[in-house]
Design a binder for these strands. Sequence first.
DNA 1: AATGAATGAGTTTTCATTCAT
DNA 2: TATGAATGAAAACTCATTCAT
Lengths: 219, 219, 219, 219
Amino acid sequence: MRHPASPPPATSLSPTPDLRRRRKDARPAELAAAALRLFVDKGYTATRLDDVAAAAGVSKGTLYLYYPGKEALFRAVIEEGMVAALSLAEHEVAAFRGSTADLLHALLIGWWERIGGTPLAGVTKLIISESRNFPEVAQYYREQVLDRGRALVRATIARGIAEGEFRPLDVDAAVDIVIAPLLLLAVSRFSLPLATGSIAPEAYLETHFELLVNGLKRS
Amino acid sequence: MRHPASPPPATSLSPTPDLRRRRKDARPAELAAAALRLFVDKGYTATRLDDVAAAAGVSKGTLYLYYPGKEALFRAVIEEGMVAALSLAEHEVAAFRGSTADLLHALLIGWWERIGGTPLAGVTKLIISESRNFPEVAQYYREQVLDRGRALVRATIARGIAEGEFRPLDVDAAVDIVIAPLLLLAVSRFSLPLATGSIAPEAYLETHFELLVNGLKRS
Amino acid sequence: MRHPASPPPATSLSPTPDLRRRRKDARPAELAAAALRLFVDKGYTATRLDDVAAAAGVSKGTLYLYYPGKEALFRAVIEEGMVAALSLAEHEVAAFRGSTADLLHALLIGWWERIGGTPLAGVTKLIISESRNFPEVAQYYREQVLDRGRALVRATIARGIAEGEFRPLDVDAAVDIVIAPLLLLAVSRFSLPLATGSIAPEAYLETHFELLVNGLKRS
Amino acid sequence: MRHPASPPPATSLSPTPDLRRRRKDARPAELAAAALRLFVDKGYTATRLDDVAAAAGVSKGTLYLYYPGKEALFRAVIEEGMVAALSLAEHEVAAFRGSTADLLHALLIGWWERIGGTPLAGVTKLIISESRNFPEVAQYYREQVLDRGRALVRATIARGIAEGEFRPLDVDAAVDIVIAPLLLLAVSRFSLPLATGSIAPEAYLETHFELLVNGLKRS
DNA sequence: AATGAATGAGTTTTCATTCAT
DNA sequence: TATGAATGAAAACTCATTCAT
């Protein structure tokens, strides 16, 4: 604890209060979160910046204090959050001890908890809808999210084959079969129920896992 | 009334009446095809009717002779083609004689030939992107396309179980697992390669089928 | 008069009436004229395209049918009219027969009639005000208008010296002294009366000429 | 009340009070100088107060501590400096002893040294560009600067005529001819080289003077 | 039927001004 | 005094829709 006799240095040069500072620091993320919600719901072009501002509780002009324009806001929305979630998953896979089936199960559950069941899942719909209009952003997403996610699943399946737990098969194709239902589940949350005619996401994932493993497992 | 056997006299004021008639009859479909291409590529809101008209080789005003507005054009794009393809599939399934695995295989191949590999596949991306903005259209698509397609797959799996070819399992969830890779494949053609990192669609479908059956089949 | 038996060829392919065509052809010049008036009066930035459209009697959107944006309108305003007037003057100078003093007088009068006394004079104020904001346009104006105009005066003075009518002097500097009052007169019409405290432009030009010649003429 | 001989104790809460005071007193002039530079370069409307503040090294809010708004800043820019320079010239003319030609020469040189060659010359371009948007400011400038400057030249020419050094002529028109090249020279420094195609300002002024006098002087 | 010029409501973006700190 | 985050009115530009021809 600081000695009571020493007053805090009166820095007259930095009178900016903490409250304002904290607000300013949090703004970009708040704005991006509001934008994500609306972009995912209505699409990029159909979303008005007026609405984004209103959803974030600021005026239209304030948006431009933090992002130079609508497209920059879009980039921020795509390039945020997802990458952090992936890094976490990569560490977990590296540290996992147990059967490959359990690892695969952990991957599915982890995906749901940190991506599929969160607002981040909307990014999937957004990137599907807008990739043609933003090729560089799509490129970034592909390299930093899709390819890394696919590598994670590929390593897991390869591990299962190497250890004799899974039968030999076309690993790349299997990766797609693992991933496809996840992506559809994510997209379904923000559009039509393309997947999961009626069942809950958790049950859906369990069935997916069960089918997968019984298909992959050496009979 | 015109006599059926006598062709209309080709006056200089109405040259090539047949050609124009044929052209006129084909117009709506041509316009819808052009609109589909652009809607799928850029999204509904970002597509300008100017561009649709140009792509169809007509003037902007002409669009309004065939469709009352942009939204009507969108409805036409969604509500056309897909339903016909489904009816065909329904008849084929009903008439199929052979193992259920073969039927499932025929379904996947038929889907690719009549939907997945054609411009119609773009409707899938379009519905994902725009369903929130057009709830009634989404409702129509769900009932007339998704539900009927899912019913087809469900009947097939149920047939396999009933005949002892497949092991008993949660049929509804299995339907999703069957369908998800198809939808992702369709969407991938018009956005990012979400599925099929590198392999050809046909090989992708074969692997999907192989994995499915070895997972479904009683071991 | 056309023979009554020969009907005008019914070109069903070009139903565009002359009236509309004539209107469309005249539009760019009408818009540029309105823009010139407002740009000169208020300045480029302070002029609203809404006002330009209103002054031209069209809607805002119509402007964009003829010019891709505000800057293009500015370019058109600067790059039109002045050059044609200059070409005319160049021909007149080349064809002139008479004393150099008379030629100089004709130049001043001709300038007033075709530029200084017309709306074109406003371009001078406009280019002064905006040249820093539009370097390429300024470059064009300098080469196509200023330099050519200056060359005209220079040739005239050189002619006078060569024929012994004027005394030898620094021709380039003299050119500026000839031109400066003209430019100020033009600018004065659209801003403050920088020149011509009170007298009429014609009298102003006559005095300018008289002073010039009595300064140039061999005493 | 503070004793005049004892300087204020330099407390840690108000460091460098003298410097700050001096800074504070100089602020309005510093701000006006920065504003002049930018207004002249880009025009009044196209200049952002953000940029003025940045150029003066203060924050945007600080501007409003010294001027109530953008227009007030414009007024200050116009109404400062020029008047002082004129008063000086008026005194010099009144006290001048020598030939009228020498006086005229001194006027031209003095103008260049105290106005034409300094940032003040920019005011000329600014007034030309903006007079229509600020009629009262233009009125002030006309009365306090233009009319007084013109009176100075008029008195000089009249003196020459009265003393038999110049031939009789229309004095008002002659004033314009004297002034026009100066104004153009000033404007040229901040826009296109309307005057002085290539020569240096000093040589330009000397030629102007020589031409003028040889035109004014009794032959 | 077909055209395409014209419209004006709607959207993005800018910036003078305010005000809490 | 000084700051700079926040505002919102205003301006450039777009595009679905209309309609005279």
